[in-house]
Design a protein around this nucleic acid. Structure first.
Length: 735
DNA sequence: TGGGAGCTAGTAGCCATAGA
DNA sequence: TCTATGGCTACTAGCTCCCA
């Protein structure tokens, strides 16, 4: 004896319903709530859900359901609605939902009511797989309300609530695309409807009524699509594709950034579904949206077209790493304590089996990129992003918001000068308190540089000294910081050249051979890139009436050329130098000609050479560098003097007035000395002086008795004195 | 005329680098 | 340690162009 049963009968038994729904028996009530909510959301964005976990009610404000069709809609033996075979990035892609709902009601002895167009109907499923709709009450609201109970089964609302929660952003506004079907699936679509070819073609993106008519014409007037052979359907598919363009992934719609999630990333891609017996493959576009937020324990939820996927993605934490995996992908992330939501928008989601488990294999790479980026962004923003949708508070925001307060604190309410580092320690507590992260001095430095570039220098701030200035003839060396430069006075008619050197080490060599004195050339360094103090000093010297030429020497490498370039040109910290700075090198050509030791630059040091170089020079510096130190001292002196001679404007010779004044001053000085000497000799100066000292001897001895005591008393009264000052006062008193 | 595509410029945060 | 700048990556805003 043979027993047979029709496939739809699997819907009406709780033990076989999982085969058709794809979820385990205990998950059926949860799925029923989700399917009803998904259908409501596909009709309208205005959806309300409520219930007490024994009853579930969903309402939407759509146009309502034709009462004549209610019975058929909730029949478990009806075939899949052909419109559901059209591939679109919407929730109810499988068209199975209402059959699962009706089946669950039968299987649990539950109740199902649909209220629409003025009446409340009870749906009564029949043994033959059909359903009847009987009026049981009046209904005075718009739209459609569906109420369901499943006997004693507890109805979990989680998926239904999530479907509403993630129903945000934009939707796909177009029609299905011919590129989303391969030869076989397009043929199946044509077979599933008794519409005409033209009516089917009109359903496709890019095929207006006129175009549809043109495409359908060659298949015969009023020809039914299900009459087409496989070859004809392939030909039709090709014709529709010729008339339309592929739909880009960005058009598919998105949830977009959501309140309550601290990071978001969206990536897109396409995957192909190859045809086995035809010529046309499907190209399915998709977008992956990933949302993250802090959680006590990591979890990962999957959504397909904004609706919870009944087969989720799994997450587990181990060794400070998070592993998330699903069918076809496996990702490891350096992060814990994060809730991840992955939404995939696509007109077609491949499934692994009849259990409706999504097959992510074809989109695994894009899912990994989007997830990694979202998690990285989450880590960056961690703890600093507001959940109310306002702009994320950055370190820069906090630093600048509290800058005035920090300046006030660092300056003692405007009384004292303060260093940049002191200011950093003024804003640091605000950043730590408001963002929970420790700011770096480097980042603060950049924020302040940008701020000062826009608003001008902060009043009272100074930068610590770095580098020095050696002045010829006076032999003095002063440290170069913004404070020392502010107080600097150029000695008149002392030097007419300044040589900026990348390294301070060459100062001693040049001083040793009297280079600064022979050339009237001051030596200046900022030890590497010129500090703003160095630039301020050059600007100050350039403003003087006295002539000035500024030279620069640097290593023959990419950094050296940028050191020269940034000394002359505008940077964030300072504008361009008004004084023209002459680049003396070392340049690649002369380094090679001099036969200097060529080194290979560190490949890890990624840096661009200066713009002023020729392409050949830039190319050479990519793989070569020569330090100034590669020269011996005689070589260096010889090279520098040779270079200086090209631009040398001679030694300092002041204008006539200054020369005459100097001559007169010197004549007066020497004359004064000569006259003083003569008068002293004539008046027996030395003898008178000796006698005077002898006469004061007793007074000296008297003071010597309490000398130490008096010095201590005086120092206590005026601590700024040195011990010699009270002695000087006592001596004056004796004399 | 509106919306999408594509491009550029700018912002932000962090890291790397120079020099002694 | 100090000063300084550039590179990289991710993202956003604004502009122009093109097409339906």
């Amino acid at each position: 004896m043979n027993f047979t049963r029709e496939d739809w009968t699997l819907f009406r038994n709780m033990d076989t319903l999982p085969q058709k729904s794809g979820v385990a028996k205990h998950g059926i009530p949860k799925l029923v709530a989700k399917e009803l909510t998904d259908n409501a959301l596909d009709i309208s964005d205005k959806v309300e859900i409520e219930g007490n976990y024994r009853n579930f009610t969903v309402w939407n404000d759509g146009d309502g359901i034709d009462p004549e069709k209610l019975g058929e809609l909730f029949s478990i033996n009806r075939p899949m609605v052909s419109s559901k075979l059209l591939r679109l990035p919407t929730r109810g892609a499988l068209g199975n939902g209402l059959r699962v709902v009706a089946g669950a009601v039968i299987a649990t002895g539950g109740k199902l009511y649909v209220s629409t167009h003025g009446h409340k109907y009870e749906i009564l499923p029949q043994d033959n797989g059909t359903s009847d709709a009987i009026v049981v009450d009046e209904y005075d609201r718009t739209g459609t309300k569906i109420e369901v109970s499943l006997g004693d089964e507890y109805i979990d609302f989680k998926w239904a609530e999530d479907a509403v929660k993630f129903n945000k952003g934009t939707k796909y506004k177009g029609k299905t695309s011919a590129y989303w079907y391969n030869s076989e699936t397009f043929f199946e679509l044509l077979q599933a409807t008794d519409s005409t070819v033209r009516e089917v073609v009109e359903q496709f993106d890019g095929c207006s009524s006129t175009k549809a008519g043109k495409i359908a014409r060659e298949y015969g007037r009023n020809r039914k699509s299900n009459e087409l052979s496989f070859d004809e359907s392939e030909q039709l598919l090709n014709s529709i594709r010729q008339e339309s363009r592929p739909v880009k992934a960005a058009r598919l719609g998105e949830i977009g950034e959501l309140e309550g999630y601290s990071s978001y990333n969206k990536q897109s891609g396409t995957f192909a579904l190859e045809s086995t017996k035809g010529n046309y493959n499907a190209k399915i576009p998709f977008t992956v949206e990933v949302f993250t937020k802090e959680a006590d324990k990591s979890s990962c939820q999957a959504l397909i077209n904004k609706s919870p996927s009944i087969k989720g993605i799994h997450a587990s934490e181990s060794n400070k790493k998070l592993n998330i995996w699903g069918s076809g992908f496996d990702i490891y992330l350096k992060c814990t304590g994060v809730e991840i939501v992955i939404n995939i928008n696509t007109p077609y989601m491949p499934i692994t089996n009849d259990g409706k488990e999504p097959n992510y294999r074809l989109m695994a790479e894009v899912i990994e990129i989007a997830t990694t980026k979202a998690v990285n962004s989450y880590k960056r923003n961690s703890g600093s992003k507001p959940t109310d949708g306002s702009k994320r508070l950055t370190q820069k925001d906090v630093m600048l918001n509290n800058l005035n307060e920090a300046v006030k604190k660092a300056s003692g309410d405007g009384t004292y000068r303060f260093s940049q580092r002191q200011l950093f320690y003024g804003v640091r507590p605000y950043v730590m308190e408001q963002l929970g992260i420790e700011p770096t001095y480097e980042n603060f430095n950049k924020v302040i540089t940008d701020y000062e570039a826009e608003h001008g220098d902060i009043e009272g701030i100074y930068r610590d000294s770095r580098g020095s200035l050696y002045t010829p003839h006076s032999g003095t060396t002063i440290p170069i910081g913004t404070l020392s430069v502010e107080n600097y006075q150029r000695p008149e008619w002392t030097f007419n050249k300044v040589l900026y050197i990348e390294k301070e080490g060459f100062f001693e060599i040049l001083k040793d051979v009297k280079f600064p004195e022979r050339y009237d050339c001051a030596l200046l360094t900022g030890k590497g890139y010129a500090s703003r103090a160095v630039k301020d000093l050059i600007d100050y010297l350039g403003e003087s009436q006295e002539e000035l030429t500024v030279f620069c020497i640097h290593d023959c490498d990419k950094a050296g050329t940028v050191i020269y370039e940034t000394l002359q040109q505008k940077t964030k910290s300072r504008g361009e130098r008004k004084v023209n700075i002459i680049d003396l090198g070392l340049n690649p050509k002369e380094a090679i000609e001099m036969g200097l030791d060529v080194e290979k630059p560190d490949k890890k040091k990624k840096m661009k050479a200066a713009d002023y170089l020729t392409p050949e020079e830039k190319a050479w510096l990519e793989t070569n560098r020569v330090e100034l130190n590669a020269m011996t001292t005689p070589q260096f002196i010889d090279w520098l003097e040779r270079k200086m001679h090209e631009y040398d404007n001679g030694k300092v010779v002041p204008v006539d007035e200054v020369l005459k004044d100097e001559l007169l001053n010197k004549v007066r000085y020497f004359t004064k000395s000569k006259v003083r000497e003569r008068i002293l000799q004539e008046n027996n100066y030395e003898k008178q002086y000796q006698q005077e000292v002898i006469s004061l001897q007793s007074k000296i001895e008297e003071k010597e008795l309490r000398l130490k005591e008096m010095v201590i008393e005086s120092l206590a009264a005026s601590p700024e004195q040195i011990w010699k000052q009270p002695i000087e006062s006592i001596a004056k008193e004796i004399v």
